[in-house]
Design a binder for these strands. Sequence first.
DNA 1: TCGTTTACTTGCATTTTGAAAGTAACCAAC
DNA 2: GTTGGTTACTTTCAAAATGCAAGTAAACGA
Lengths: 129, 129
Amino acid sequence: MIPVSPNRRSECPIASSLDLVGDKWTLLVLRDVLDGKRRFSEFERSPESIPTNILTERLRRLVDAELLVRVQTGKGSRHIYEPTSRAEDLRPVLLALAAWGNEHLAETWVPPANYLRSSNSPDDSNQGV
Amino acid sequence: MIPVSPNRRSECPIASSLDLVGDKWTLLVLRDVLDGKRRFSEFERSPESIPTNILTERLRRLVDAELLVRVQTGKGSRHIYEPTSRAEDLRPVLLALAAWGNEHLAETWVPPANYLRSSNSPDDSNQGV
DNA sequence: TCGTTTACTTGCATTTTGAAAGTAACCAAC
DNA sequence: GTTGGTTACTTTCAAAATGCAAGTAAACGA
């Protein structure tokens, strides 16, 4: 369980979830990681172009809340971010948002049928994001 | 279909949805309206205490995007906001967020089994939000 | 060894948010 | 028919978050 945060607005589970992931960028980072991306530079290269200072801060928050774990790879400042089951459990949220977007927003990419359905690495035939 | 917005970050359906509802407050207004609330003053009284200038602006955006319709009641500046089917279609997003919050965030209200499942007015036995 | 990549940090301008107070129209009671 | 309350806002201004650009240090790759 993620402990009660000091800036929680209410005990509503929706409001409390949004206190953690309800901003412009966090769910997009989670989208990427659940789509198989693992590295800072991969998140950075996504089409939305997240500013790097914000990416750093969001990754830190997600690691703090244990939605991601940061794993050292090689010697220096080279690591990957792996989703935990807490992050995996957000898939239904992302899938519901994607379905709503495809149904109601003009000119959105329709992802392949299995998009975000497994934790596998992204498949080359899809449009990714 | 909601037309392409000038500030859209990408054609990803998740990112595009978040361009409209991906902030701290919008989904809480939609939670309230899907929970049976209809008036400005009802949204204002929710436990998260949305600032009124922000509430005004969010209601305007949701009316513009046709997730809500503003209906005059009585003479003067007295109206209600009714959800359209575009808003109803966001229920799965809210339910998924609520489920995730209840599973992973400490001390969140567990809403009744039928929470947000219908467009009926809220039932007195529930804790509302 | 030299250029490139990775994963950041820093500084600063712009934008958004938040808190509080103000307002105008209506409504209900006395 | 005035007074007090409610409704649905608007305005002001401070504070916080975001965004952009540039800088950095270590490591990697040829």
